[in-house]
């Protein structure tokens, strides 16, 4: 039997908001360690990797490993039926055809159950090599979302340049150009507002704005985002999910032939 309970269903609601732009279906791998998902978008330009650790759940039981293929739009519809204050429980039997979502109101006077059919997916699983990145930037996630939104008005692609001075985002298009520079913040008491650059070598990479704008749908999950970059390899855009796990987006760069 598989059973995973989260008092704060809002976390799962936010996770679905964070993946539904990119994925239409995905396999949720459930084991003793927790719930993992790895899936590419339809165009195979980006990859989403989600990890929810079992010890982050309020109750977790997984008697045998399960791979559950789910329709992301359907799951998203179901989670929109939960109130943010509700507790959510995911439940499935061994060799399941369906998964059940149970939402309980705080005083347990309303209990809703939604059963969703599972789908068979033949998904390609990619091994992501351990990489030491040339630049790792931590910055406020809202600021990153704002910059992606603002710069995507100027062009389809955005260049991210990172040096020891800070991080620079730029876009160019028919209307003109846009540049946003963020300096590293000094020692600040408010870690949520900090911009921190750890740099081994300066990096300059170009990425599709459309994908970055999908990644920033994860902004409500965490006040800070971490961007890891090295020359000519995918960007990693990472959001911590409270004490339970993280979501990482990998985005293939645009490279000159």
């Amino acid at each position: 039997m598989f059973e995973a309970r989260l008092v704060q269903s809002v976390i799962l609601k936010k996770v679905l908001e964070a993946i539904k732009d990119l994925l239409t279906e995905a396999t949720f791998e459930c084991s003793d360690c927790g719930i993992q998902l790895q899936a590419m978008d339809n165009a195979h330009v980006s990859l989403v990797s989600l990890n929810l650790r079992s010890d982050g759940f309020d109750k977790y039981r997984c008697d045998r490993n399960l791979s559950m293929g789910m329709s992301v739009p359907c799951m998203s519809k179901i989670l929109r039926c939960a109130s943010s204050e509700d507790t959510v429980t995911l439940r499935a039997w061994d060799n399941p055809d369906t998964i059940v979502f149970v939402f309980e109101s705080p005083n347990r006077d309303k209990i809703s159950e939604y059963e969703m059919k599972l789908i068979n997916l033949d998904q390609e699983h990619l091994g992501i090599p351990e990489t030491l990145y040339s630049c790792v930037v931590k910055m406020p996630s809202q600021e990153f979302a704002r910059i992606c939104r603002d710069l995507s008005q100027f062009g389809d692609a955005m260049t991210i340049a990172c040096s020891k001075e800070g991080i620079k985002f730029s876009a160019a298009g028919d209307y003109g150009t846009a540049n946003v520079k963020l300096a590293q913040t000094a020692e600040t008491e408010n870690q949520e507002e900090a911009v921190v650059v750890e740099m081994k070598e300066p990096v300059k990479l170009t990425f599709s704005c459309r994908y970055l704008n999908s990644f920033v749908k994860a902004t409500p999950l965490c006040a800070q985002v971490q961007l890891s970059m090295s020359a000519e390899v995918p960007l990693v855009c990472e959001y911590q999910i409270g004490e339970i796990g993280h979501i990482r987006y990998y985005l293939a760069p645009k490279i000159d032939d």
């Binding site: 590419m40 165009a43 195979h44 330009v45 980006s46 990859l47 390609e124 699983h125 990619l126 091994g127 992501i128 090599p129 692609a157 170009t206 599709s208 390899v233 995918p234 990998y250 985005l251 293939a252 760069p253 645009k254 490279i255 000159d256 032939d257």
Partner: peptide, 14 residues
């Protein structure tokens, strides 16, 4: 213009 790469060019298939 730079060309968009596919993500699996960078990762190993399991």
């Amino acid at each position: 213009a730079p060309k968009q790469r596919k993500i699996r060019q960078f990762f190993v298939k399991w």
